[in-house]
Design a protein around this nucleic acid. Sequence first.
DNA 1: CATAGTTTGGACTTGGCGGTTCAGTCTTTT
DNA 2: AAAAGACTGAACCGCCAAGTCCAAACTATG
Lengths: 210, 210
Amino acid sequence: MTGLTAKGAATRDRIVRAATDLILERGVNGMTLDEIRVGTRTSKSQLFHYFPGGKSDLVAAIAGFQNSRVMAAQEPWIDGLDSWESWQGWRDAVVAYYSNLTHKYCSVTALVNDVAPTDPALAAQVAALADRWLDQLAAGLRRMCDNGLLRDGADPDRLALAVFASLQGGLLVMQARDDIEPLAAALDGALTMLRAWAAEDDGGGAGRTR
Amino acid sequence: MTGLTAKGAATRDRIVRAATDLILERGVNGMTLDEIRVGTRTSKSQLFHYFPGGKSDLVAAIAGFQNSRVMAAQEPWIDGLDSWESWQGWRDAVVAYYSNLTHKYCSVTALVNDVAPTDPALAAQVAALADRWLDQLAAGLRRMCDNGLLRDGADPDRLALAVFASLQGGLLVMQARDDIEPLAAALDGALTMLRAWAAEDDGGGAGRTR
DNA sequence: CATAGTTTGGACTTGGCGGTTCAGTCTTTT
DNA sequence: AAAAGACTGAACCGCCAAGTCCAAACTATG
């Protein structure tokens, strides 16, 4: 993808943005290139001009783009999850972000789930994105351990895994039921779990209970 | 599906069983009817004879069958989740069941996720199965409330939703990483969360911490 | 044993969708 | 302004998977 003029870059960007919302609405297999062509007001040749690898190439770009949007929505909390307040702020930001969404597919993980078996490269890319996300959670918890906010014996990586699973599951159930409540309940549950690991003299109970 | 002889019923059953493992391995869109035909040692006409609605009809049968297997694996715990010991037993049974599995797709919810937008009937069926599952969890928690095992203010339905999300998320992440640990961590997290709601004089801490 | 109904095999049809091609237009550069 | 190269539109191709058809082979009854 070298030698793109400003116009070309703009077109590519327009395609990614529009295609993201389309794909997120109906899934990878539920949306054809022709529909994307119409939805983005482009032509087939443009699609293949900017994404030589075809559909999976486009989906990869979409996954990266959507991931960046999701991560941006978690700013500034995601970068410093090392206090009870920041976790609550993060939870609120996540719920707020997904509350305003209209598309059906919310979790990139779930989106790519159905093509993962036939597209290992894409699966690996999404797995890497998920790992980065998970690492952000774990990093915060690790600092909380160091700062004595969590009890001895707390395993930051394992706790992060549990929180991440709650998040992904919340998104999945939210998607299936078209209701934000499962996500909210899942994240509140995850926070309750974390507070159960709070050091005794701290309590962590400063935050809301639900 | 009336007028099936014993032989016909056996054939239909054989198809469902074999097709379940195939579909669970590669996903709905990743597995063609021709591959299913080969894998089940049948012919196209049989597939459409026993499942007049075609592929979605077959997938619906598979979803029901797999659901019954998954629920059976949770016996006897799933029917009486009204003590701390039963929750721990349930958690262990779930982890044990999925530990022995070889297929890639574990959660029926995730399986159907990718066809849900284009097949509302199937989506509704799976949603109903999920609801029944969720209700089992909620019923146990409700009894625990009544028996004073959970603090006042605990919302059984919401807690069940959080546990269910942890479970589904654990399965999803487990699938993506091909590792049982995410599921175990997610369920342990869910149990930790529940114990955080234990009535003061009980503690619920009798169970393991991880 | 006849006959109606069920079960089976495998070739055939159809359509949708990812991908290709090419001619034509716009941009940039010198 | 002219040439090189990036960008665009639309018709076209070919594959492959879902779904159809029909004749043959069973199986249950009278």
